[in-house]
Computed example of a mutant assay.
Amino acid sequence: MAPVTHQPSSAPDPSAAPRGHGLRRDIDLLEALASDEAQNAGGLGVVRLAQLVGREKTQVSRALKALAAEGIVERDPDTLEYRLGWRLFSLVARTSENRLVRMAEPVMHALSADLEETSHLCVLSDREVLTLLSVSGHSFRVHGWEGRGVPAWQTSAGRVLLADATPDELYVRFGTATELPVHELWALIQEASRQGYARVSEEFEAGLVGVSAPIRDFRGRVVAAINISAPKPRLGERLDVAGHTTAAAAARVSALLGWEPRRTPPPRTRLT
């Protein structure tokens, strides 16, 4: 009688899930913690996060504990809610935007010391302005805004970051999804381009004013913005002075990135 040979089972092995499967689930959690809901609330609990990502509460709890152990998320000891952690922002600042951050930080310290206000380094992320770095005029960094996104059309930083966009690109990016009609946003962008900086007064938040100026790379393209924001009673009467000072600081960073202001910018498309 011939010996019986056991053939490998064709049943799927539950442990053989795609290697990126767990990472995808972690990314879903991080995206939920970066949502407007989480930012407005200052964090989200396990139950709400489980609802947002469509997973079991126990699974989400285990994943969050692992992420918290690595500093990717943080848990508030009082509310027990989670928010994005310091290590995530640190990793971002040290990778793709590393050179920009390194060039901008000392200039921003000098600017903040000059104006006695906190300065922010901002980039455009889809329809939002994302803060990469915040510094004060002292020898420390300010983390309250780092990693936080705000609507581009409401901020002075958004108006300078969109300086290279054509009207068609603005319609594609924003459509009718904003509180500000595209033709009005276009006019504000053009005004900021003529002035060399943008200014807002209580348009993003009551009692808050700010100015922003563009940082350009060696091609002359706007890649970032330096922003100064402060309470209106403190900065409101010197917005234009702050705008010119911030524009000079942004130009210094642009020069460090290889931009030569003598180059003539390409002709702009008119809004019809």
Rank of each mutant, 00 (worst) to 15 (best):
residue 180 L to M: 14
residue 147 G to S: 09
residue 87 R to V: 12
residue 126 D to P: 03
residue 97 E to R: 04
residue 184 E to F: 11
residue 151 P to F: 05
residue 183 H to N: 08
residue 177 A to E: 13
residue 128 E to D: 14
residue 113 A to C: 05
residue 99 R to E: 13
residue 132 L to K: 04
residue 95 T to H: 14
residue 188 L to V: 03
residue 141 R to W: 10
residue 162 L to P: 01
residue 150 V to G: 01
residue 186 W to Y: 13
residue 122 C to A: 01
residue 124 L to F: 10
residue 159 R to W: 02
residue 155 T to P: 03
residue 131 T to W: 00
residue 180 L to Q: 11
residue 127 R to P: 03
residue 97 E to S: 14
residue 92 V to S: 03
residue 173 R to G: 00
residue 160 V to A: 01
residue 131 T to A: 02
residue 137 G to T: 14
residue 184 E to S: 07
residue 144 G to F: 08
residue 119 S to L: 07
residue 103 M to K: 06
residue 110 A to Y: 03
residue 121 L to H: 09
residue 151 P to M: 05
residue 122 C to V: 02
residue 87 R to H: 11
residue 143 H to R: 05
residue 118 T to Y: 00
residue 163 A to S: 14
residue 131 T to L: 00
residue 155 T to I: 06
residue 101 V to P: 00
residue 119 S to A: 15
residue 85 G to H: 08
residue 171 Y to N: 12
residue 112 S to Q: 05
residue 86 W to Q: 10
residue 152 A to R: 06
residue 101 V to L: 02
residue 122 C to H: 00
residue 190 Q to M: 08
residue 104 A to S: 07
residue 190 Q to D: 01
residue 182 V to I: 12
residue 181 P to I: 08
residue 95 T to S: 13
residue 177 A to P: 06
residue 133 L to K: 08
residue 103 M to V: 04
residue 91 L to Y: 02
residue 112 S to K: 08
residue 93 A to G: 00
residue 152 A to F: 10
residue 155 T to E: 01
residue 116 E to D: 13
residue 165 A to G: 01
residue 139 S to M: 05
residue 138 H to N: 04
residue 174 F to Y: 10
residue 134 S to P: 09
residue 100 L to Q: 01
residue 159 R to G: 00
residue 113 A to I: 07
residue 105 E to K: 12
residue 83 R to A: 14
residue 90 S to E: 13
residue 169 E to H: 07
residue 141 R to E: 10
residue 127 R to M: 07
residue 173 R to V: 00
residue 156 S to W: 05
residue 145 W to M: 11
residue 175 G to W: 09
residue 176 T to K: 11
residue 170 L to D: 11
residue 158 G to Q: 05
residue 146 E to K: 06
residue 167 P to Y: 12
residue 108 M to E: 07
residue 111 L to G: 02
residue 134 S to D: 09
residue 134 S to E: 12
residue 93 A to Y: 00
residue 140 F to L: 10
residue 171 Y to E: 13
residue 90 S to A: 13
residue 96 S to F: 09
residue 121 L to W: 04
residue 105 E to R: 14
residue 186 W to A: 13
residue 115 L to K: 06
residue 185 L to Y: 09
residue 185 L to R: 10
residue 131 T to N: 01
residue 103 M to F: 08
residue 189 I to R: 05
residue 94 R to K: 09
residue 145 W to G: 07
residue 166 T to E: 04
residue 191 E to A: 14
residue 106 P to T: 01
residue 188 L to A: 15
